[in-house]
Amino acid sequence: MTVFDVMYRSLIFIVILFIITKILGKKHISQLSLFEYITGITLGDIAGEVIMSKDMHIMHGITGLLVFSAVSYFSDYLTLKNRKLREIIEGKDTIIIQDGKILEEGLKKEKYSVEDLESLLRDKGIFKVKDVEYALLEPKGKLSVLLKKENQPLTAKDLGLNMPNEKEPQTVIMDGQIVYEALRKSGKNLEWLKTELEKLGTTIDQVFFAQIDTYGELSADLYQDQISIPNQNERQLLLAVIKRTQAELEMLSLQTEEPETQKIYSLNADKMKAIQIKIEPYLRE
């Protein structure tokens, strides 16, 4: 067995493993179920064994890999169709805590000690079992926890706040290269990008990274970190202008003596107030 042997065996198995993992897909890399876990370990082990030992025939190794990946592939296919099969092959979750009470049978069945449970909970930042409403062990041995409502993080919904939805930001410049696809997705073009960068006081060749947000605002990171670019807050500025104008209209209505004109001013001041209330959620940062 020479170094050269190891080299060419390694190269062969790198290519084969690469192809197999590409075919089996993302699900196998995440190793969600028992079966995928076994397959993952075995594939690596077979490849390693065949690369390092002379007595192993390369073809035998490849056969082993192909059988394992083929069975795994078909079990994926079958478990998609049948729920019963899915339970058998991929495993079932076990409830460990329900209604805030630890289920001892569940723990015993999975051979987890109370210390193991505590450790898994601590891993999620939970130190009091009392805070947990419901917890179950996933087939892969991970613990998933639902906290009691009072212990859950506060959301805007809990506070009854109306938060406008936001779309995913589009990265339009990456490594100094313009990503035309992202630019198209956000409905902008090169001219627009150039103008916006000009507003920020920079040019395309100086930008390392840039994103467009929901409101079409561009934020850029420059190659030169010493230069800071002005913070764009057009929306907050607009909100301020609306508030000021609304106040001015009210002021005018107070200063005017003619009742006709006064009415127009106060009416429009109210209208401006309505606009402000309506779009304030969209203008806040």
Binding site: P164, N165, E166, K167, S186, G187, T214, Y215, G216, E217, E234, R235, L238, K278, I279, Y282
Partner: peptide
């Protein structure tokens, strides 16, 4: 702003 926004709800408002 309405033209630049990509979220429909914001666009309408």
């Amino acid at each position: 702003l309405a033209l630049n926004s990509s979220e429909e709800e914001a666009q309408i408002a």
